[in-house]
Amino acid sequence: MHIRTSRASVAVDTPGESKPSSRPANPGRRPAAQTLWATRPLALRDGRAIAVRLVGDRLEVAVVDATTATIRWRLASSVLTERQATIWANTSDSRRTR
């Protein structure tokens, strides 16, 4: 059950109501990702690379599409050469998030 006010809605326990587990089991859940956001994007043929993330053992790059301005996560090996990755790593500071 919840209580609604003009500013918020708050969940409350009611007698006899069973509580769901705090973390539902989800066997198809993706592994946790570690993301590094670049302060300087790298210009690519398809747009700009703005971040990298490691999901399990897969390295992905966030590319902002040059025409639609949408962000797509793509495999690093399909977006960057080793030389481009080295140049980008050396010229861009990054901010880490989890």
Rank of each mutant, 00 (worst) to 15 (best):
residue 1 M to C: 05
residue 4 R to I: 10
residue 4 R to P: 05
residue 9 S to Y: 03
residue 10 V to I: 13
residue 10 V to H: 14
residue 11 A to W: 09
residue 12 V to G: 01
residue 13 D to I: 02
residue 15 P to H: 04
residue 15 P to S: 07
residue 16 G to H: 11
residue 16 G to T: 08
residue 16 G to M: 08
residue 17 E to R: 12
residue 17 E to P: 03
residue 17 E to I: 03
residue 18 S to Y: 15
residue 18 S to A: 14
residue 20 P to K: 12
residue 22 S to N: 12
residue 23 R to Q: 11
residue 23 R to K: 11
residue 24 P to A: 14
residue 24 P to V: 15
residue 25 A to R: 10
residue 26 N to Y: 13
residue 28 G to V: 14
residue 30 R to K: 15
residue 31 P to T: 14
residue 31 P to E: 15
residue 31 P to S: 15
residue 33 A to W: 09
residue 33 A to Y: 09
residue 34 Q to V: 15
residue 36 L to N: 10
residue 38 A to I: 01
residue 39 T to I: 14
residue 39 T to A: 13
residue 42 L to Q: 11
residue 42 L to S: 09
residue 43 A to F: 09
residue 44 L to T: 04
residue 45 R to I: 04
residue 48 R to P: 00
residue 49 A to F: 11
residue 50 I to C: 02
residue 52 V to D: 00
residue 54 L to T: 00
residue 56 G to V: 01
residue 58 R to A: 00
residue 58 R to E: 03
residue 58 R to Y: 00
residue 59 L to Y: 02
residue 59 L to R: 02
residue 61 V to G: 00
residue 62 A to Q: 02
residue 63 V to W: 04
residue 64 V to S: 02
residue 64 V to P: 00
residue 65 D to E: 02
residue 66 A to E: 03
residue 66 A to Q: 03
residue 67 T to F: 03
residue 68 T to I: 05
residue 68 T to C: 01
residue 70 T to Y: 12
residue 70 T to L: 06
residue 70 T to F: 12
residue 73 W to G: 00
residue 73 W to S: 02
residue 75 L to G: 05
residue 75 L to V: 08
residue 76 A to S: 07
residue 76 A to T: 09
residue 77 S to M: 06
residue 80 L to V: 09
residue 85 A to G: 08
residue 86 T to H: 15
residue 86 T to S: 15
residue 86 T to E: 15
residue 88 W to D: 05
residue 94 S to E: 05
residue 95 R to K: 11
residue 96 R to K: 11
residue 97 T to E: 12
residue 97 T to S: 11
residue 98 R to S: 07
